[in-house]
Amino acid sequence: MHRQFIAEGSKVALEWLHSDMPIDTIVATAEWHAANTHVIARHPEAAVHIASDDDLTALSALHTPSQVLLVLPYAAAKDVPNVNEWYLALDDIQDPGNMGTLIRIADWFGIRHLVCSPNCVDVYNPKVVQSAMGSHIRVNIYEAPLADALPALSAPKFAATLSGSDVYQAGTHESGVLIIGNESKGISPQVMALATHWVTIPRTGGAESLNAAVSAGILCALLLPR
């Protein structure tokens, strides 16, 4: 069985086309193809198909189809490496928009390793790919039970939780694992028990909680070296 996924939209497609990542198929309108022949030529391995707007509408998973669609191979499965760097560890993230944004956050902060528990939303879901805006290219994404993967990592482990200590007092760290929990249930007890630090973003207003991806972005800005 071929494990493939789709990336749609000119901005996302151009991210892949400017990279050295393999591409299986490029489906584009004649107009888009003509305007981007120079970058399409970087990928002689890709089959190229010219399609009408109606064809792309029929193929698209988006509400507003674009002029180009790529068929891409899944990245080869890898073991989570134990390195002196930062990781994001995601415990059962379910929302595709959150997952895509979390991949972009990892990319923004230069975090090269993102570990997803098996019950996370598929990182190649079309909505995830769209939200990540090409960041799949630069972030290594692993799927593994966090209860198995985290003990093998020597970096300190920071659990994002409402009951944690003030992250503004935590300082910055050269390496670490930032654990972000499920949107409604938070971090599971088994994974929480593996954390070496519990941190929270102090609340001064009335909101009950922060979105998982928003929390991750704030915590990365405060914990990672600047």
Score class of each variant (00 low, 15 high):
D122S: 02
E15N: 07
M192H: 10
P118Y: 14
K11V: 14
S117V: 03
I218T: 01
R203I: 11
I201Y: 10
H136V: 00
P225H: 01
W86P: 07
T200N: 14
V12I: 15
T64L: 12
L219W: 07
W86L: 08
L17K: 12
T172Y: 04
Q190V: 15
D53G: 10
S163V: 07
I218D: 08
F109W: 02
D148T: 15
L90C: 12
L210V: 01
V68G: 03
D107H: 13
L102W: 08
D91H: 01
M21G: 08
N182C: 02
M99W: 05
F158M: 05
G164T: 04
S165M: 07
P151W: 10
N211F: 07
S60P: 02
I137S: 06
D55R: 14
S215A: 15
Y87K: 06
D20T: 14
I103E: 00
A152C: 12
Q67F: 01
Q130P: 02
L222N: 07
A149Y: 04
H136M: 07
I103C: 11
R3G: 04
I105H: 10
E85V: 13
G134Q: 04
V115F: 03
A46L: 06
Y168M: 08
S184M: 13
A213M: 10
S188E: 09
G9Y: 01
L194K: 01
T101G: 05
I103V: 14
P189G: 03
A144W: 05
A160G: 10
Y168P: 00
N98V: 11
I105A: 05
S19Q: 12
I103F: 06
A61D: 12
P126V: 08
Y74V: 05
V12A: 13
Q169L: 07
N182H: 01
G164H: 00
G181C: 00
L59D: 03
K157D: 09
F109T: 02
I187H: 02
L114M: 15
I180Y: 07
K11C: 05
Q169W: 00
S135H: 11
H38I: 06
H43M: 06
D92H: 15
P44W: 03
V121L: 04
C120R: 14
H2W: 06
E183P: 09
A132P: 01
H136E: 04
F158E: 07
A47K: 07
W108F: 14
A77K: 14
A28T: 06
